[in-house]
């Protein structure tokens, strides 16, 4: 099936000379939830802004639902809804006015029943006459979502949707996203939390310093990313790892004072029990232990290394 969004050889160098995106090639499948995962400054917002027409690409081509975003910008943009990262609203407008404004802007005739439904779905109906400036941050974000959905888009971009969002809105938002997906809406969200990508997405693309490092199904990705380490602080330092432990993924650290075991949390058997047994049999004693998950930054670094 033809991808709903196709990004080919996109580069972006800002006027400042800073290159924010390099050789981006990416296809988004129709109807999927795609997470663009990357640390701050990776280029996520830049990429979304280019697709939506807010930022000009330096080179490359993009199509949305088969329409070139520059040449056939009308057809392309009609399909797209965007919830930007920043909360930018017209302080003096009412919720009702601002959502209807968005619908008109995207070329749709008035449909009060539909707008009412969107507002109700987002628990905004009783706030419809409230001025934007009187709303809390969470409410404003709901309005931004309502604006993005006002013209019934088939592609929805959510840029850092859960940054600074309370638990309730988070839950509502996920319910909404899944509801939209069931109706066939394609959703692209950005995040810098692995957990969020894991919780939400069907596929994950990792972006780092303006390059897409890897794009994979979530489950495969999580197997790769979900590594944990167990660090044992030994009573007496070891010079080398004993032969009998060669079956375990072990490393020595801190001049032999620490033994580091790397395992996969996704697998049924982490191997921890066997390792403990073996250590006991060998008479290797430890005074402390802790487990840790590799940080996002570690993961990016290892992914980049693996690629080179």
């Amino acid at each position: 099936m033809q991808p709903i969004i196709s990004i080919k050889d996109v580069n972006k160098t800002y006027a400042s000379g800073f290159t924010a995106l390099q050789d981006i090639n990416l296809d988004i499948k129709r109807g999927e939830i795609f997470a663009l995962l990357g640390p701050n400054g990776a280029g996520k917002t830049t990429l979304i802004s280019i697709i939506c027409g807010i930022v000009n690409a330096s080179s490359g081509n993009i199509t949305a639902d088969g329409h070139d975003i520059i040449r056939d910008y009308r057809q392309a943009r009609e399909k797209i809804g965007l919830v930007p990262q920043e909360l930018t609203t017209d302080a003096f407008e009412s919720v009702w006015a601002t959502v209807n404004f968005s619908r008109g802007l995207f070329g749709k005739p008035k449909d009060h029943a539909y707008v009412e439904k969107v507002l109700r779905d987002l628990s905004l109906w009783n706030k419809k006459d409230a001025k934007m400036m009187t709303l809390s941050g969470g409410m404003k974000r709901r309005v931004m979502i309502a604006k993005a959905l006002s013209h019934e888009p088939s592609i929805l971009f959510l840029d850092e949707p859960t940054a600074g969002v309370d638990v309730e809105l988070r839950r509502d938002m996920w319910a909404l996203v899944h509801g939209l997906r069931e109706r066939g809406v394609t959703i692209i969200l950005t995040t810098h939390y692995i957990e969020e990508a894991e919780e939400m997405a069907d596929r994950v693309g990792v972006i780092h310093e303006g390059r897409i490092i890897v794009v994979e199904d979530k489950t495969e990705m999580m197997a790769k990313l979900g590594k944990r380490q167990l660090t044992l602080h030994l009573q007496t330092p070891l010079a080398s790892i004993p032969e009998t432990l060669s079956g375990f993924k072990l490393e020595l650290a801190d001049e032999g004072n620490q033994l580091v075991y790397t395992f996969d949390i996704q697998s049924q058997d982490t191997g921890i029990t066997q390792l403990m047994h073996s250590l006991q049999n060998l008479g290797i004693d430890y005074k402390d232990l802790h487990s840790s998950q590799s940080s996002l930054e570690d993961i990016f670094v290892s992914l980049v290394r693996a690629k080179q």
């Binding site: 027409g53 930018t88 968005s102 070329g107």
Partner: peptide, 10 residues
């Protein structure tokens, strides 16, 4: 910053 919406509209 609300200009984003006008810029992204058809």
């Amino acid at each position: 910053g609300t200009i984003y919406e006008v810029l992204s509209a058809p």
